[in-house]
Each structure stands twice: as structure tokens, then as C-alpha cells.
């Protein structure tokens, strides 16, 4: 059984007015994909392609108009609240904007402790020890526990977000542009961290990004979304680059040169 199955999901946004349905923008159009245990799927696409909406639908934050999300074989939107809560424990998320994903008035300890309090009944000492361990796992020191978000840099705060996401030893992480706003050095460090965590905890990722290089570095399989449709799906990333599909070629052409000699401007 696959870890996650997205089956024919269609979703749109729009406001209905009093007399008739006003124009409705279709954001996801019949999207289907699967993610196996321990697999990382890189989801590429330009802004407005519907990548983030798909992420939200999978997380259970946005009920799709049509289609099913099967996580560990159970439909996320067609089950009772307690099962759903139980499933969501194994499905965590890291967003792009690290500053707005944390409460500025909470310390790192409270931020990472929140999921633990919600799902585990640990004694205060145990909880503190777990948080210290988590901070070390993501490359920070246990002393950072007392600090507030504004005392961290963007990269450090993203590590806190990752620590919070892995606190409950989930099976899957949705990484929605998780490294896009970071500078190159930090980006490389976070990607290495994510790779390591994947091997240690056997995590699966849905890595949403517009950056083909980052996606290529971390993913096993790659997919491309365009205007709400999944236009390319490729199980083997090495084959992906050879695909003659126009949207793959467009992505490859948009890569900036690595050396001034190969300028494309």
C-alpha cells in the first residue's frame, strides 16, 4: 500500500453570489499522484500552478471539490475526527515563510513542544529532554530553547520549523517552498539536513518548489504542474532531464548559468 494516494482531485476558488455561481477559478484539475514509503517527490511548477493548493488539500486544510486523498489507505476527508487527528500526526508541514509560521511570543521550547503536548503525554522533564534532542538533530544547541523567533536567523528558524515538524516522528513531510527564501549557503545546509533526516527516520517528502536545482538535489521522483494539471510525472529523476516534454524543457531553459561562460542572456 502506498503511503499517500491523491486520486483525481479537482479544486477551485471563487465566490458565489446571491443569484448565480460567479466565475470560479479551477486551481486543481483532476490531479492524481502517489508517494511510496521513504520516497521524495519533487513537485515543480511556476507560481500560480496550484502546487501550494495541492499541498493544502493533502494536509486536510482545504476540502477538495472532487477526488480523494488516501493517506495510509484511509480517506482523509471521509473519516471521523479522531481517525483524522490520528492520521494527521503522521503528516506534517514546513512552509516557506519561517517567520510567519511561528508565534513570535513563544520560545523555541514552546514552539517545538506544542505538537508534543497535543499528542504525547510526557512529563515536563521528558519533554524538555526531547526538545533538546530535536534541536540537536536539526543542528542547533539545546541552549537555544529559551530564545524567541526574532533572535534566530531565517535559516535557524527554518530548522526550528523542521524540528517541530519531526517532533512526532511523522511518516511524511510536506515541504512547501521550504528552502526558497533562504540564501544559497543556508539552502544547501537545510537540503543536507533534510536528506539526512530522510535516511534516519525513513521520512517521505512532498517537496514543493519552483527551483529545479533544489528539487533535483533532494528528490527521487519529479513531477511538474502547470495551470492546475499534473503534466509530467517521472519516477526516476535522471530520466526526467531527458524528457522532451515542453514544460520540462521550459524549466531547464530557465536555469541560470553556473559560470559566466555559459550565459544565456
Amino acid at each position: 500500500m502506498s503511503l499517500l494516494q491523491v486520486k483525481n482531485v479537482t479544486h477551485g476558488y471563487g465566490s458565489s453570489n446571491l443569484f448565480w455561481q460567479a466565475k470560479r477559478a479551477t486551481v486543481l484539475d483532476d490531479v492524481s499522484l502517489t508517494i511510496e514509503h521513504g520516497q521524495c517527490l519533487g513537485l515543480l511548477g511556476t507560481s500560480g500552478a496550484g502546487k501550494s493548493t495541492l499541498g493544502k488539500v493533502i494536509l486536510g486544510l482545504e476540502k477538495p471539490q472532487k477526488g480523494q486523498i488516501l493517506f495510509q489507505g484511509i480517506d482523509l476527508y471521509d473519516t471521523n475526527a479522531s481517525t483524522r487527528r490520528h492520521l494527521r500526526r503522521d503528516l506534517q508541514v514546513v512552509f516557506q515563510d519561517c517567520y510567519s509560521s511561528v508565534n513570535p511570543r513563544m520560545t523555541a521550547e514552546q514552539i517545538i513542544g506544542e505538537p508534543l503536548q497535543n499528542f504525547e503525554s510526557l512529563s515536563p522533564n521528558e519533554q524538555k529532554r526531547t526538545i533538546g534532542e530535536l534541536l540537536e538533530t536539526v543542528g542547533l544547541s539545546p541552549e537555544d530553547m529559551r530564545k524567541y523567533p526574532h533572535q534566530f536567523s531565517g535559516g535557524q528558524l527554518q530548522r526550528i520549523n523542521i524540528a517541530r515538524a519531526i517532533a512526532l516522528k511523522p511518516k511524511m513531510l510536506i515541504l512547501d517552498e521550504a528552502v526558497s527564501s533562504l540564501d544559497m549557503v543556508t539552502q544547501a545546509n537545510i537540503l543536507t539536513l533534510l536528506k539526512d533526516l530522510k535516511t534516519i527516520f525513513g521520512l517521505s517528502y512532498l517537496f514543493i518548489t519552483h527551483d529545479i536545482k533544489a528539487a533535483y538535489t533532494i528528490s527521487d521522483a519529479l513531477a511538474v504542474m502547470e495551470k492546475g494539471e499534473l503534466v509530467v510525472q517521472c519516477e526516476d529523476k535522471t530520466q526526467f532531464l531527458q524528457l522532451p516534454h515542453p514544460s520540462v524543457q521550459r524549466l531547464l531553459q530557465s536555469i541560470l548559468s553556473e559560470h559566466p561562460r555559459s550565459r544565456s542572456l
Binding site: 544559497m184 536545482k213 524543457q249 553556473e258 555559459s262 544565456s264
Partner: peptide
């Protein structure tokens, strides 16, 4: 040197440019 090495490696860059 550290900055240059931090770039996510995509050695496929050269061959694919030709491929395009």
C-alpha cells in the same frame, strides 16, 4: 570558495543546454 561550493550541484546543466 565556500559560496561557490554551496550551489546545488546540477552537473546536468551543460549537457542539457546542448540537448535543448
Amino acid at each position: 570558495k565556500k559560496l561557490l561550493n554551496a550551489r546545488p550541484a546540477l552537473q546536468i546543466n551543460q549537457p542539457t543546454k546542448e540537448f535543448v
